[in-house]
């Protein structure tokens, strides 16, 4: 056996468990799901091919269009989360006393169960809620702000919860990434008289680039596929201003068993996701030496 053939065989052996599992539990349902987007299907009877009907119905529904727009707007959380998570990771990447507890504190939202998040944030955001109380006490506002009841603000309030939930998750990934930044590079930079800010920009950020790529792709997909926060806080209201594309798919598909419609909606979203992922790779992929 030639060396390259042996190499190829070995590579596929390494991949086998993952590929088998992916085929059975990802490719197969995802492929079947994509097929169902072109059918009418009720679980018991065989799917009926309806061509592009589901897509036509989707694009005739102005609610879906505005849901898509909201999902696009939702991408604003990506830079916010990433910048904050990197800063947070840098801030806790040291051995100061008690820092362990701070890291755990930032990770708390990640572990908090969804139902609790819903109760709390609804409570924070009501007219008489904690947030308005604090702002009034600081004399920032006179009238309460309808965080979740004003359709001009609600989507942003929901986005804030997404950021709040995601920070700790990405902080962990960035912390892991920071470990691969060699310490001697920093020491050399200090000797060269670089200040903390310069070191951050000239050393930390470039060396973190692979992690930044990974995190921003994940965070973009998560943002476009945002659903849970809407489900627990606004259920799409007020004035349908917080409908996201996946929430739409859930409401009109999974909940009322119209799988064809739901899958058509997610397939449309997938097109956006592919475009976004491609852009990310194009501009954030570090140049190979």
């Amino acid at each position: 056996m030639s060396a390259s053939k042996k190499n190829t065989l070995q590579a596929w052996l390494f991949l086998t468990p993952a590929l088998l599992l992916l085929m059975a539990f990802s490719f197969w349902p995802v492929g079947f799901g994509s097929y169902l987007a072109f059918t009418q299907y009720n679980l018991i009877d065989a799917p009926v091919w309806v061509g592009l009907d589901n897509f036509r119905e989707l694009f005739e529904d102005e609610l879906f269009i505005s849901a898509l727009q909201n999902s696009a707007l939702y991408l604003l959380v990506v830079p916010a989360i990433q910048v904050l998570a990197i800063l947070l990771a840098v801030l806790v990447n040291n051995q100061l006393p008690g820092i362990k507890f701070y890291r755990a504190a930032y990770y708390l939202p990640v572990v908090t169960t969804v139902s609790v998040i819903g109760v709390i944030w609804n409570f924070m955001y009501t007219d008489d809620g904690a947030l308005n109380a604090v702002l009034r006490w600081l004399h920032v506002i006179n009238e309460p702000i309808g965080w979740l009841s004003d359709d001009r603000i609600a989507l942003f309030s929901v986005m804030f919860v997404t950021i709040w939930r995601g920070l700790g998750w990405y902080m962990v990934l960035y912390l892991a990434g920071l470990q691969s930044v060699p310490q001697d590079v920093y020491e050399a930079a200090v000797l060269d008289g670089a200040n903390a800010w310069q070191r951050f920009w000239k050393i930390t950020v470039p060396l973190l680039m692979p992690t930044i790529l990974l995190c921003s792709v994940m965070s973009m997909l998560a943002a476009v596929k945002c659903f849970e926060e809407v489900q627990i806080m606004t259920k799409g209201g007020p004035m349908q201003s917080t409908y996201t594309a996946l929430f739409y798919a859930y409401e009109f598909g999974i909940k009322s068993l119209n799988f064809g419609r739901a899958l058509a909606a997610s397939l449309v979203m997938s097109v956006f996701c592919v475009a976004l992922a491609w852009l990310n790779f194009r501009y954030l992929q570090p140049r190979k030496k």
Binding site: L22, F25, S26, F27, P29, V30, F32, G33, S34, L36, A37, M218, L221, A249, Y250, G253, I254, F259, A262, L263, S266, L267, M269, S270, C273, V274, A277
Partner: peptide, 9 residues
């Protein structure tokens, strides 16, 4: 698999 619809998985 991260991107394509996974709602009926």
């Amino acid at each position: 698999t991260m991107i394509l619809p996974s709602e009926v998985n």
